[in-house]
Amino acid sequence: MNVLFVCTANVCRSPIAAEILNKLSKKVDIIADSAGITIIPGSLPTEKSISLLKDKLNIDINDREAKQVSIKKLEKADIVLTMSSYSRDFIKEKFPKFKNKVYTITEYAGVKGGVTDPYGSSVVVYQKTYEELEELVSRVLDRIKKEGSM
C-alpha cells in the first residue's frame, strides 16, 4: 500500500509523517511518500525538521527536496492524507478524480482538528507537532492493518 502525506510546502509536517510511517511499517507492505500543494522548487526541509528526524528516528533528510503534489503521485497513492482540511479540499477540487481517497490525517485517524504547522516556530512547537504526528500515524497504521488494506 502506498500512502501519500500532503501539507503546504512539503518541508515540515508531511515529510515527518512519511518518515514516521516508513519507520513504523518497515515490516509490513506500506510505503509512505510526501508532497506539498504549493512548494517552492528546490526548497529543503527546515533545519528543525531535519534535526527532529535525526534525533528521533536516526533518519537524515538533509538533501530531500520538496515535491509538488501531482497526478502521478496521486495515481500511485492508495490513500492521500493531508495535514489540513484546506489541503484536502484543494486536492479534491483540483484533482476530482482522486477525491475518494483523500482525507485529512486526523479524520482518517478518527480524531478532530488538523495538524499544527510548525514552520517558523520554536523547537518546542516542532516537538509537539512531531508527537502529534507520531500518534496520528500510529492510528493510521492501526486502521490500515485492521481494515486489511495491505
Rank of each mutant, 00 (worst) to 15 (best):
D29Q: 13
K23V: 12
E107F: 06
F90G: 00
E47Q: 10
V124N: 12
Y103A: 10
T8C: 07
T129W: 09
K99F: 09
S43K: 15
S25Y: 04
N62T: 15
L52Q: 05
I31Q: 14
S34C: 09
G36Q: 01
G148H: 06
P15T: 06
T38H: 14
E65H: 12
D89P: 08
D78M: 04
L53N: 05
K99D: 11
S149W: 14
T46F: 08
P15L: 05
R88G: 02
A35S: 15
A66M: 12
Y119H: 12
S14N: 05
C12K: 08
P118N: 04
M1N: 14
L81M: 02
P96E: 11
V6T: 09
D117T: 06
A32L: 04
A77D: 03
P96I: 11
G113V: 01
A35P: 06
K26S: 15
E131Y: 10
K112I: 10
S85L: 11
K73L: 15
Y108Q: 05
T116N: 09
Y130C: 00
F5D: 02
L57C: 09
C7L: 10
M1E: 12
K101I: 14
V6S: 03
E134I: 04
K97L: 14
T8N: 10
V28R: 15
G110H: 09
I71P: 00
V123F: 10
S138C: 02
T82I: 06
E93H: 07
L136W: 07
K145R: 13
T116G: 01
E93M: 09
T8E: 07
V124F: 12
I79V: 11
E19C: 08
I31T: 13
V123G: 06
V125Y: 03
S149H: 11
Y130L: 03
D117G: 05
A35L: 11
A18P: 11
G114S: 10
N22Y: 04
K56F: 08
V102Q: 05
S25L: 07
T104P: 06
F98H: 12
D117R: 06
I79A: 00
I59T: 14
I105N: 01
Q127P: 00
A109W: 02
K48C: 02
P15K: 03
I71G: 04
P15I: 05
V11F: 05
L53M: 09
S84T: 15
M83I: 03
D117C: 06
Y86T: 13
L133W: 03
K146I: 11
P15A: 06
Y126T: 05
V111S: 01
K94N: 13
R143A: 12
V137D: 00
P118Q: 03
Y86Q: 10
G148W: 08
V69W: 02
P15H: 04
I105M: 08
F98V: 06
I91G: 00
V115H: 04
T129A: 15
C7W: 06
L81I: 00
D78R: 03
P96N: 12
I71T: 11
I39K: 04
S84W: 02
D63Q: 10
T116P: 01
I91W: 03
S25G: 15
